[in-house]
Design a protein around this nucleic acid. Structure first.
Lengths: 210, 210
DNA sequence: TACCTTTGCTAACAGCGTTAGGTAAATCTA
DNA sequence: TAGATTTACCTAACGCTGTTAGCAAAGGTA
């Protein structure tokens, strides 16, 4: 598949079309996979179902992805990029670091519950191949956004770098922890508004204590 | 298998021996499964490997467990019971609610990193069949222990029941969130002592703010 | 036209969870 | 002790999974 593609430069149009088709196939596979996940959950996603959905045979998928994990990884990257775009919006909207931090928390929370499939994949909740450790820039997007906001709030204080670093993780932890607990139904609070109030409360306490 | 076991009461000894053997088999399956998990991780645990390890054929396992998920569920219950015993120790050791809460946090943290397989199973981290929602008393053990301690600290304050409830979840969240982030290698802090300092810091801030 | 690359397929391998059905041993009954 | 019955256990299969080897057809190149 388009392995040795150099050589003649006359048929550039055809080559480009092929590259375009290849990319279309790739994005199509990802789109179809994501749709299957939304419809039936991660656990029932299979290469054969993807092949059925794109109306190609199974091995075609392996021309575009090394294995199933690579597909899941790419989808998780989509999730990180989507979250990043939302956080960037907050950044443009709120100049005040405290307001921005609140907005980031809200955005993170809403992202998780509006896109539970993404969130589960991104943070390995109830997932088979959670591919931990595959650190990429996208992976740290949320931490970097809240870092910026927290450092903005804290900059007048006498906090050390280490203290600030700790606070960043503490903030992230309480959010991620609460989302995980609620999403995995470990909480016995059934009311989603109530759960959100717990988050707001925690965020308030955190900011007050900065 | 021991289905209709009533009838005659002369052969009670044999019946008891059979029940004992059946229980032995059951516990043996669980023990062997846990060992396999510790050696090779959740993802590679299979019924066939368990059968090999106990030196019986595959269907024998289904005489003792409805399916693979039931085995995982039982193992997660073992995890909850183990954690519960440790928390009970704290309770006996520390009468002062603040000291007790700190001990609980420490215990929870140590439990997670000394028994990562249990923790992952109990809270569905990177797990295929995380069986969420199957609430059992064991499931709420940690929350109830910290509830007791937090209520002990807070009882002199003017906190409402709702506020207290929120605080309990906030405390649990920050612990679980940090453990998840570290365990799933989302954190870029590689030093485990450093990570624990983040926890201690958070616990301190939390208690100070009660 | 002859050649070669690309494209896509069929069919298989090895593994998985699960179960139907049969056999041999252990046990109970007479 | 002999026969009937229950229990214990196994073999072999079904339908699924991820993955890959190897082949046939289609396309572009000379």
């Amino acid at each position: 598949m388009l392995t040795a593609l150099g050589k003649s430069s006359i048929t550039m149009g055809i080559l480009e079309r092929k590259i375009r088709q290849k990319e279309n196939m790739r994005t199509n596979i990802l789109a179809v996979a994501m749709q299957l996940v939304k419809d039936e959950g991660w656990q029932s996603l299979s290469i054969r179902k993807i092949a059925d959905a794109i109306e190609y045979s199974v091995p075609v998928i392996y021309d575009h992805f090394e294995n199933k994990e690579a597909i899941l990884f790419e989808l998780s990257m989509d999730g990180f990029r989507l979250l990043d775009r939302l956080l960037e919006k907050d950044k443009r909207k709120f100049a005040d670091p405290e307001e921005r931090l609140r907005a980031h928390a809200e955005t993170y929370w809403n992202f998780a519950f509006k896109n539970p499939e993404y969130y589960q994949l991104m943070y390995g909740l109830g997932m088979p191949c959670s591919s931990p450790g595959k650190a990429k820039p996208e992976f740290n997007s949320f931490r970097e956004h809240i870092s910026e906001a927290i450092e903005g709030i804290v900059k007048d204080n006498k906090s050390s770098d280490e203290e600030t670093c700790f606070k960043i993780y503490a903030f992230w932890s309480v959010l991620h922890g609460l989302i995980s607990i609620v999403m995995m139904r470990c909480s016995d609070i059934d009311d989603s508004q109530m759960n959100k109030k717990v988050m707001d409360d925690s965020v308030n306490a955190f900011i007050k204590n900065l």
